[in-house]
């Protein structure tokens, strides 16, 4: 007879009994013993994405519509910040403002986590020459006109971080539109007015080039 196995089983039973008693005590004390809150958040986020976000941004956050941004792989904190700013009006969007206002801000963290965990897709480079010029601008900036390297904030691989969004694989059309919006002060919710200053220093060719480079990453 294997006694160690028996004692092990006895131990498990003892442990389960203790757990039951603990639950009973906690319940008696008024605690609700339930599944962890993050599991609920994740399930809820999935439902919201399916019902609300996926029509434009895709169920996996990889939008197939060039004017709607891809969200897959973006840092959750950045997603939460933008959602809040669509509501407050700091970031202006006639499309996103009413959609976000209809959501519970308590769900934003779950949405950020959901999109942040999706695998980002890459686009296709159509103009290799422009992409090569865009790479140089992205990594080194333009010293003559004082354009900083985009890599300084958005990371060398353009994966972004909690303060600055992922740009790798993003639709070129969306990138060009956002840079134009920064340049024309239409988009003005960024940290310390930095992107408006940068966009005003960019030429049209540079905007096209850097968007071409990023879309292929």
């Amino acid at each position: 007879m294997d006694t160690s196995d028996c004692s092990g089983r006895r131990g498990d039973a003892k442990f389960a009994g203790a757990q039951e008693r603990t639950r009973a005590w906690l319940a008696a004390l008024g605690f609700v013993v339930a599944a962890p809150a993050w599991a609920d958040d994740a399930e809820k986020a999935k439902t919201i994405v399916a019902n609300v976000c996926s029509a434009c941004h895709g169920i996996d956050g990889n939008s197939t519509v060039p004017t709607y941004p891809k969200l897959a792989g973006r840092h959750p904190d950045y997603i939460v910040r933008e959602l809040k700013e669509f509501i407050s009006g700091k970031r202006k969007s006639d499309i996103m403002a009413p959609i976000c206002a209809a959501l519970d801000p308590g769900d934003f963290k779950g949405l950020g986590a959901y999109f942040g965990a999706q695998k980002p897709s890459s686009g296709t480079v159509l103009n290799a020459k422009a992409a090569a010029e865009g790479k140089k601008l992205y990594q080194d900036g333009n010293e003559l006109s004082g354009v900083p390297a985009c890599a300084g904030c958005h990371e060398p691989d353009a994966a972004g971080n909690k303060r600055f969004p992922r740009l790798a694989g993003q639709h070129r059309e969306y990138l060009v539109e956002q840079l134009h919006n920064f340049r024309n002060d239409i988009r003005n919710n960024e940290t310390a007015r930095v992107m408006r200053e940068v966009a005003k220093r960019l030429t049209e060719d540079e905007i096209t080039a850097v968007a071409e480079y990023l879309t292929g990453l």
Binding site: G141, E143, L144, G146, P148, A149, C150, A151, G152, C153, R163, T191, A192, V194
Partner: peptide, 18 residues
């Protein structure tokens, strides 16, 4: 982080003198 677009990571600057 907001400075390293020009001054580079590690603040090494640019040999061009910019």
């Amino acid at each position: 982080v907001g400075c390293q677009g020009c001054h580079k990571r590690g603040a090494t600057g640019s040999p061009s003198g910019a």
